[in-house]
């Protein structure tokens, strides 16, 4: 009986953990898509920032390498570290949104002297 209960407990826990992991993966994928869209919008307005997804950026470390924020999100997701993947996907999305807002605010920039 004890053995049976143990097996049931392990099964329930593993289902629980895997559903959490699936939920994290889904949340990451959603944020990643939103980050890409936000930065595409900023790029189209001429206001994308350097570190959101720049190929030469060395802003965030993942493993031994430094890379852009979105690339770091992808790197952590590939390792199954969805806490960091989500954190950096959110950060990249935020940079895209701020870059777009900045470009819109500066559309009529001119001298103030």
């Amino acid at each position: 009986m004890k053995q049976f209960s143990g097996i049931v407990l392990v099964a329930v826990l593993s289902i629980g953990f895997s559903s959490f992991a699936l939920a994290d993966e889904a949340a990451y994928k959603k944020l990643h898509a939103e980050a890409v869209a936000a930065n595409d919008k900023a790029l189209a307005a001429g206001g994308e920032w350097r570190d959101a997804r720049g190929k030469k950026s060395k802003f965030i470390k993942c493993g031994d390498k430094k890379m852009s924020i979105l690339h770091a999100a992808e790197c952590y997701a590939a390792k199954g570290d969805y806490d960091n993947a989500i954190k950096y996907a959110e950060m990249a999305k935020d940079q895209g949104e701020q870059g777009y807002r900045q470009a819109m605010n500066q559309k009529n920039a001119g001298p103030r002297h």
Binding site: W49, D51, Q102, Q106, A109
Partner: peptide, 9 residues
């Protein structure tokens, strides 16, 4: 406009 526009982080 480019010269006077603030950009980047």
């Amino acid at each position: 406009q480019f010269f006077y526009a603030k950009r980047g982080q």
